[in-house]
């Protein structure tokens, strides 16, 4: 009887163990994305400016060979875009479809990313680079739709618009105070009151 009880306990624990293994295997799921480039490598990549493409440089290349990615919203994209650009909004960058597109281009030509400003494109670029797609270029332009026209303006990244130090120096100049010089006191001329000479009174009285 004692022996049987022992067997029972062992078989129960064995079944439990099996269950745990089976459940853990079933629920095991690989995360869809993971960063493959660490921050140190990313920092190295963004530190030299070779990934930045100016508008002039862009106009000289054959745009058909490259994947041009527009990371603006669907709405902005539908109004106007650079020719041959594909719309992958920043919010949909981690969709399977978007990643497949990037992956395809990654092997052959660099993907050129632009947005409404270089910062927006930079956000997409940094996310993709850290995911392991290294064949990327950033188009340093500002794009906006105004007056029924699509404007593309080249932006010099990190450029100071004014010379800060000299501007501050200039604005430190003390204001010249309003000085109203008092007029020098003019010597007051003595008034010469000419007393009218008293006329001799004619003697009054009658005759």
């Amino acid at each position: 009887m004692k022996e049987l009880e022992k067997t029972k306990r062992i078989s129960i624990s064995a079944v439990l163990f099996l269950l745990v293994v089976v459940i853990s295997l079933l629920t095991f799921k690989q995360p869809q994305f993971s960063f493959t480039n660490n921050t140190a490598k990313t920092l190295e990549f963004i530190h030299n400016d070779s990934y930045i493409l100016t508008w002039d440089e862009f106009e000289q290349i054959d745009a058909n060979e490259f994947l041009i990615v527009d990371v603006r919203s669907n709405f902005d994209f539908s109004k106007a875009q650079i020719n041959n650009a594909v719309n992958i909004p920043l919010s949909q960058l981690l969709d399977k479809k978007s990643i497949a597109l990037i992956e395809k281009s990654d092997l052959e030509h660099p993907a050129i990313i632009y947005g409404k400003n270089p910062e927006e494109a930079n956000a997409a670029l940094m996310l993709l680079y850290q995911l392991g797609y290294e064949n990327l270029k950033l188009l340093s332009v500002e794009t906006y739709y105004d007056d029924r026209q699509f404007h593309i303006k080249n932006i010099e990244i990190g450029k100071a618009k004014v010379n800060y130090a000299s501007t501050m120096e200039k604005s430190k100049i003390q204001p010249i105070k309003k000085i109203i010089a008092k007029p020098a006191p003019t010597p007051v001329k003595k008034k010469v009151v000419v007393k009218p000479k008293k006329k001799k009174k004619m003697p009054e009285g009658g005759c």
Binding site: P31, Q32, F33, S34, F35, T36, N38, T39, L90, S91, L93, L94, L127, Q130, L131
Partner: peptide
């Protein structure tokens, strides 16, 4: 395994 947060949270 990678350093830092997940790509989804980063996005």
């Amino acid at each position: 395994k990678h350093e830092g947060i997940s790509p989804e949270l980063f996005a």
